[in-house]
């Protein structure tokens, strides 16, 4: 479990993390989401014990990072931003070093080493210097380092940043596989990642907590939630007629591809009425879609002025 309690960090006058209280439970993948410079990395560095909080505190598996830093660090596997590692070492040397510092006994350490190397498919590069590895491989070495001691809590700072789509997929699968019995906190600014991985999302901007919800709940906040969009090429779908439906709030037409989006009034389902209308009119619709809501729009709304002001008011 990870808990932060009014966690605050100031650099001079700048408040990087402002009274942040979040909580992640075992079995949860909590996504820490925010624009660049929102304070995600600073918050994680405090939880990991690299930075000292200005005020407030954090607990890892119940161990306060200020009072019991070593216990907290033992319970935690941490991948710092950019996955730093000692470039002049080989992958094997590096992982052996980590195992030694973490005090893994020989037989346990060996078993874990084999398991982690297998899981992250590092067998072929074990004797290579980390400096000579590709970005994706280096990230995997960083992940291996983080999970080597089989920690109950895992914290990954932008684990897929800079990876190609296949590598991203592999890392996500790995996180997914480990999620069941662990607490995982990942930071990201990639919204697709939230969909793919997280079962809970915390959005922060300028160090402040702005939202704490499930991805589905966030999507419901989108004005696209429940909207119906369709393409009807070459036909003059009457916007007027759609507008006359009692359930419809507004209609937008994409100026580029002519795609029509119909927005419902709050809490009303409009897929059926719209389909019904289109059928009655005998209009050819190539494809029709019920929107779940757009996270990027919610994210933008929450983290830019409007949402932030609303929240603090």
């Amino acid at each position: 479990m990870i808990e932060t309690d009014q966690l605050t960090r100031r650099y001079g006058h700048l408040t990087a993390v402002d009274a942040l209280s979040i909580r992640a439970e075992p079995g949860q993948v909590l996504g820490l989401l925010g624009p660049n410079g929102a304070g995600k990395s600073t918050a994680m560095r405090m939880i990991a014990g690299f930075l000292a909080p200005t005020s407030g505190t954090a607990r890892v598996c119940g161990h306060d990072v200020r009072r019991e830093p070593l216990r907290a660090k033992r319970a935690l596997g941490y991948l710092p931003e950019g996955a730093p590692s000692y470039g002049e070492m080989t992958v094997r040397e590096f992982l052996v070093f980590i195992a030694r510092v973490r005090g893994l006994r020989a037989e346990v350490g060996y078993r874990r080493f084999e398991e982690v190397v297998g899981r992250l498919q590092l067998e072929d590069v074990l004797e290579q210097c980390i400096d000579t590895l590709s970005k994706g491989l280096r990230r995997r070495v960083g992940l291996a380092q983080a999970i080597l001691h089989d920690p109950p809590v895992l914290m990954l700072d932008e684990p897929t940043d800079g990876l190609d789509p296949n590598q991203k997929h592999a890392v996500r699968q790995l996180i997914d596989a480990m999620a069941r019995e662990r607490t995982i906190l990942i930071s990201t600014h990639l919204l697709e990642e939230v969909h793919a991985l997280c079962n809970r999302v915390v959005i922060i901007a300028r160090g402040r907590l702005l939202a704490d919800a499930t991805p589905a709940e966030l999507e419901q906040r989108s004005r696209y939630h429940g909207a119906v969009s369709f393409s009807a090429p070459g036909s003059g779908v009457s916007q007027e007629m759609l507008g006359r439906l009692p359930q419809v709030a507004s209609i937008e037409v994409d100026p580029l591809d002519g795609r029509i989006t119909v927005f419902p009034k709050p809490g009303v389902r409009i897929l059926e009425p719209v389909e019904e209308l289109l059928r009655q009119q005998g209009l050819e619709v190539s494809e029709i879609q019920l929107e779940r809501g757009r996270l990027d729009e919610v994210f933008r709304h929450i983290t830019t002025g409007a949402g932030a002001a609303e929240r603090t008011a």
């Binding site: 690299f50 660090k73 935690l76 941490y78 710092p80 950019g82 730093p84 000692y86």
Partner: peptide, 13 residues
């Protein structure tokens, strides 16, 4: 090299 963060988040004083 950024490894300071790695080293100081390992369980050692």
């Amino acid at each position: 090299g950024g490894t300071l963060e790695l080293l100081l988040t390992l369980p050692l004083t």
